[in-house]
Nucleic acid binder design. Structure first.
Length: 497
RNA sequence: GUUCCCAUCGUCUAGUGGCCUAGGACACCUCCCUUUCACGGAGGAUACACGAGUUCGAAUCUCGUUGGGAACGCCA
């Protein structure tokens, strides 16, 4: 219940996912969003989407659209933020795009400047570089103390009036105190005070920088819990310093472990798909994606593995979040997708695979009875929706071809005789379609006629039907096919002998 | 280099001092089902990084070592 996770100063659980629209939605980001949503919903709180687009050079409208689309696809619905359809703000704490909040940041910076807690800094890149080198050589943590930190505001303004440009830096306290953070998933974390130098709040063009906006927005949007990836842990010190300078109530921080590649480095593009979009295109189900991502660092109290979003919400608590990094195992994801897929009713599965079949240009029957039967036949062979393409291709006559794998069958001596008998018996069949029993009967007749059995019997028949010696059970496949196409295929197979 | 974080099967994890000769899941192997394959079912192999301590008792607590990761920007 929300009361147990709230600290003083906060009346409801409010969490946010704050991506910057500079590319596709990464699965690591999606996982952060998911954990925030699970935590919010479990505690009857609000999940907020905030867009961090202060890096004007890299932020794009297109990327924002993509992220919103991916979040929608995953079903990670937010209570406040850009409306998923219109992109107009919804919720009482807007604007939710940082580029529209510039005057707010400016005002806070002015206050800090006036109070002497921040200052204008005129250091050039070259000077900064030299300073960093010196610090590095001394074996210290890279942080810069600006020589301008004690210049008066009036002097600085005079300098600027003369045309010099400056950034605004926070004047970090020089007392030797350590900063203690009680991270709600990692426990106590201690930052030494000299870990941080005077850091930038406002760039020389006046644009605010991440750590600054983040604190201001979290405060003004009444964010009670900041749940984000571990890479932000060092940022927390800077943010604590800003909270302190502003004398604002500090939210609870929690840092999630990283999602790793199989080489145990932060998940990156070079090892395969990392964008949600790509998983959608490959035929993964949002339910499976969410389930899998949740289990990267969280476990169900009863160790259940296949979970719906609703089940995850009701079971989600922070004390079951694991602190160590987790490797993104694509093989297990696939298995999990198959589990979710097979749990769906056949009609729903058809709906899901249909766009993939269309995309592949397959021409398949349109009656729903056939569709449902076909799904029943194939679903045990499908892990991702895209697998349907290869499975259904054999049913499209224009796609029938004898594959290289069939050479195994052609190498067998009795193949020709079996094929001939098969074709003959199919032609003699009185109706246009076949039941399972019809097929088995014909198969028996081929057996009787040729004296072949086992592999010698069914490999050739299989090739005559699907072009390869392995695949779905023929007795279920044949009822999905038409007599004339079976004959045409048998003819083709025979010609290969 | 500096600071911080982390450490149970190959992988995701359970485990909060005795229930652990460490449990589950994926993957792997064997068998069963099946006139192939897949699905399904039954079994198997595989892990507490190392070293000290605390304790009657340690995967669990403490310290150290080693290893891994992240961060050190006028990116977020």
């Amino acid at each position: 219940m929300s009361s147990s996770v709230l600290t003083t100063g906060f009346s409801e659980v409010r969490v946010r996912f704050a991506p910057s629209p500079t590319g596709y939605l990464h699965v690591g980001g999606a996982r952060s969003a998911l954990f925030n949503l699970l935590f919010a919903k479990h505690n009857h709180g609000k999940f907020i989407l905030r867009i961090e687009d202060t890096d004007q050079a890299r932020s794009t409208e297109e990327s924002l659209q993509m992220m919103i689309q991916d979040l929608k696809w995953l079903g990670l619905n937010w209570d406040e933020g850009p409306n998923p359809e219109t992109l107009k703000d919804m919720g009482p704490y807007g604007p939710y795009k940082q580029s529209e909040r510039l005057d707010i940041y400016k005002k806070v910076a002015d206050q800090l400047l006036a109070e002497g807690k921040a200052f204008y800094c005129f250091m050039t890149d070259a000077e900064l570089e030299i300073e960093r080198e010196k610090i590095k050589a001394a074996g210290l943590h890279t942080h810069v103390l600006s020589p301008y930190r004690n210049m008066s505001l009036a002097d600085a303004q005079k300098k600027m009036a003369g045309g010099e440009s400056a950034v605004v830096r926070l004047k970090v306290p020089d007392d030797e105190k350590d900063y203690n953070l009680h991270d709600f998933i990692r426990g106590d974390v201690r930052f030494p005070s000299d870990m941080e130098g005077d850091f930038v709040l406002l760039r020389s063009d006046g644009m605010p920088v991440y750590n600054f906006c983040c604190v201001i927005d979290d405060h003004m949007m009444k964010i009670s819990h900041v749940l984000r990836a571990e890479e932000h842990l060092p940022n927390t010190l800077r943010q604590l310093m800003i909270y302190e300078a502003m004398n604002w109530t500090i939210p609870q921080f929690g840092h999630l472990s990283l999602v790793l590649d199989d080489d145990r480095q932060k998940l990156s593009k070079r090892k395969g798909a990392v964008s949600c979009d790509q998983f959608r295109l490959d035929g993964y189900l949002p339910a499976a994606m969410n389930n899998f991502m949740a289990l990267l660092g969280w476990s169900h109290p009863e160790e259940k593995e296949i979970l719906s979003l609703q089940e995850m919400i009701s079971a989600f608590t922070l004390n079951r979040v694991h602190v160590a990094g987790a490797v993104f195992d694509r093989v297990k994801l696939k298995w999990m997708n198959a589990q979710h897929l097979r749990a769906l009713p056949n009609e729903k599965i058809w709906k899901q695979i249909e766009p993939f079949l269309k995309e592949a240009g397959l021409n398949l029957p349109t009656d729903s009875d056939w569709q449902v039967r076909s799904v029943e036949t194939f679903k045990a062979y499908m892990e991702v929706l895209k697998d349907a393409v290869a499975l259904y291709s054999p049913l499209d006559d224009s796609k029938y071809e004898i594959l290289p794998e069939a050479s195994e069958a052609y190498a067998m001596e009795p193949t020709r005789a079996v094929l001939a008998a098969w074709k003959e018996l199919v032609e003699a069949h009185p109706t246009e379609t076949f039941t399972e029993a019809d097929f088995l009967k014909i198969q028996d007749e081929v057996k009787a006629k040729t004296g072949q059995k086992g592999k010698n019997l069914f490999f050739p028949i299989r090739v005559a039907l699907i072009g390869k010696p392995h695949g779905a059970e023929l007795k279920i496949l044949v009822p999905l096919m038409h007599k004339k196409s079976i004959i045409a295929r048998a003819q083709k197979a025979l010609e290969k002998c």
